[in-house]
């Protein structure tokens, strides 16, 4: 199958300016500035085939967002080549933009002070989406994401989960070939995350939309991606099937529950109590034996709780293990 994204020897450097201190310093800053060069992406290569979902993972500041910004035409690379759908994003920015969808988890790409509906209408005009296509898409997205609950609400008033649903739907209105998702589940609760993942899966399967997803949430990757590209310190550390590094991902999760009352028996199926003090209980469990949603619904059925959180394994841990065990780069 043909590649839809091709990245060849791609690098991006940033100039970081140092500010001189003091009054005279700030005066001198006006005319000449000292700078250091930081390499955010360092000679990376990869290809993505049409219809794949690829997890682009790595610790913070590894170069994930910079790569996405180059693929979407926001940043101009320092050197190397890249093609999306056969186009060079920063040279054919508008043509590329017409065929891709982009979502940034950190902030909305919609118009902050407009109602969701108004934003969608603007997008319909911008991308010149035919009315039938627009209506059909809206209906489909509404079924899964339940947009109608907040369709008239200004974007700035949406909760994080609602905003993300609106953002993803908006990015798909014009039926893009590729969807770039930069930390789409950041800050969301378990249920909201699950809903977003479900939607991404559906879109990928039914419409053959290629998805490149950056995240530092490993459960996103486990649930969605067959293939992962792991980047650390601007370089690709691993590129291959998820199964190849699955053994490196710790299977056990920690569920921390603060109960509202004192219960005599707080044991749960398929879990081990690791810690118990007053009304706080730590459970160890493996998602292979019981799904998180089942676990939570069981708790909510039986008990009253104050708070609940799940500790996910961290990517830094995997990166460390890869260095330790010298897992080799898997050639594509």
């Amino acid at each position: 199958m043909q590649s839809i994204i091709e990245v060849e020897d791609l690098s991006k450097e940033f100039k970081v300016y140092r500010h001189r201190q003091g009054f005279m310093g700030s005066f001198v800053n006006l005319f000449s500035r000292q700078h250091a060069v930081v390499r955010a992406v360092d000679h990376i290569n990869f290809k993505i085939r049409r219809g794949e979902i690829v997890g682009y993972i790595g610790p913070n500041a590894a170069g994930k967002s910079t790569t996405i910004k180059m693929l979407t035409g926001i940043l101009v690379p320092t050197s190397g080549g890249l093609r999306v759908n056969g186009r060079v994003p920063h040279e054919q920015r508008k043509e590329n933009a017409r065929r891709i969808g982009v979502v940034f988890g950190q902030r909305t790409h919609l118009w902050f002070d407009l109602p969701v509906e108004e934003s969608f209408e603007l997008l319909r005009h911008i991308y010149r989406i035919p009315m039938e296509q627009y209506r059909a898409n809206l209906e489909l997205f509404n079924d899964v994401l339940e947009l109608h609950n907040f369709f008239q609400t200004p974007v700035r008033q949406l909760s994080l989960g609602q905003r993300m649903r609106a953002d993803i739907a908006a990015a798909l209105l014009h039926d893009p070939d590729v969807l770039f998702l930069d930390e789409p589940t950041i800050g969301l609760d378990v249920v909201a995350k699950e809903r977003i993942r479900q939607f991404i899966r559906e879109i990928n399967q039914e419409r053959q939309v290629t998805v490149l997803l950056t995240t530092h949430d490993l459960s996103d990757v486990e649930k969605l991606c067959e293939r992962v590209i792991l980047i650390d310190h601007a370089r690709i550390l691993f590129d291959g099937k998820l199964t190849a590094i699955r053994s490196l991902i710790p299977r056990e999760r920690l569920l921390i529950v603060d109960y509202a009352e004192r219960y005599p028996n707080v044991e749960l199926r398929h879990t081990v109590i690791a810690y118990h003090e007053n009304m706080r209980v730590h459970y160890r469990f493996s998602p292979d034996n019981i799904s998180i949603t089942d676990l939570i619904s069981e708790i909510l059925e039986r008990f009253k709780i104050m708070d609940l959180s799940i500790q996910e394994p961290e990517i830094e841990e995997i990166v460390r293990l890869i260095y330790e065990r010298k897992v080799l780069l898997e050639g594509q």
Partner: peptide, 11 residues
């Protein structure tokens, strides 16, 4: 970061 949003549009 709103200028990023402008760069992802076909305009």
């Amino acid at each position: 970061g709103e200028f990023d949003n402008m760069l992802i549009r076909p305009l």
